[in-house]
Simulated scan of single mutants.
Amino acid sequence: TALMGEKAAHACTEAVESVIEQHYADQVAELAEREPELAAELSRFRDEELAHKTLAIDEGAHGAPGYGLLSAVIRAGCRTAIKISEKV
């Protein structure tokens, strides 16, 4: 995406961070009662991802050429990578 321009790079960041943010939120929800300290740490990580996502949006992510398609492909790739890593 960097070769596609700055807005496309921000769109990539926004898409990746959206998926990662949701993954952390799911983990926090699952661990909140059993492992509250770990859940708190993961929550801090999630907040960092949310800040990256917000910055990418502020920097023009949604103005990237083909934003909808680009974002969908990147999000699908991220979700696939997470599923694979959960199996390994």
Results as ranks from 00 to 15, higher is better:
A2H: 14
A2F: 02
L3Q: 15
G5Q: 06
G5D: 02
G5V: 13
G5N: 04
G5W: 09
K7W: 06
K7P: 14
A8F: 08
A8S: 15
A8D: 08
A9V: 00
A9I: 02
H10I: 02
H10L: 03
H10M: 12
A11M: 11
T13E: 04
T13R: 04
A15Y: 10
A15D: 05
V16E: 04
V16P: 04
V16S: 05
E17R: 13
E17M: 08
E17W: 05
S18I: 05
V19E: 05
I20V: 15
E21A: 14
H23F: 13
Y24I: 10
Y24G: 10
A25M: 01
A25Y: 07
D26F: 09
Q27I: 13
A29M: 10
L31E: 08
L31T: 01
R34V: 12
P36Y: 01
E37H: 06
E37C: 00
A39G: 01
A39W: 05
A39H: 03
A39L: 02
A40D: 08
E41L: 15
E41G: 10
L42Y: 08
L42K: 00
L42W: 04
F45I: 01
F45S: 00
R46P: 02
R46A: 07
D47Y: 06
D47R: 06
E48P: 01
E48V: 10
E49M: 06
E49R: 08
L50E: 15
A51Y: 00
A51K: 09
A51E: 12
A51D: 11
H52A: 04
K53D: 02
L55R: 02
A56S: 05
A56Y: 12
A56R: 01
I57G: 04
I57Q: 13
I57P: 06
I57M: 12
I57L: 07
D58Y: 00
D58T: 12
E59T: 11
G60I: 14
G60S: 00
G63A: 14
G63P: 03
G63F: 09
G63L: 05
A64Q: 07
A64L: 10
A64D: 03
G68Q: 11
L70P: 02
L70A: 04
S71K: 14
S71W: 03
A72N: 03
V73H: 03
V73G: 00
I74A: 15
A76M: 06
A76F: 13
A76L: 11
G77L: 00
C78R: 07
R79F: 01
T80M: 15
T80D: 04
T80N: 08
T80V: 10
T80I: 11
I82Q: 06
K83Q: 09
I84P: 08
E86S: 06
K87Q: 14
K87S: 06
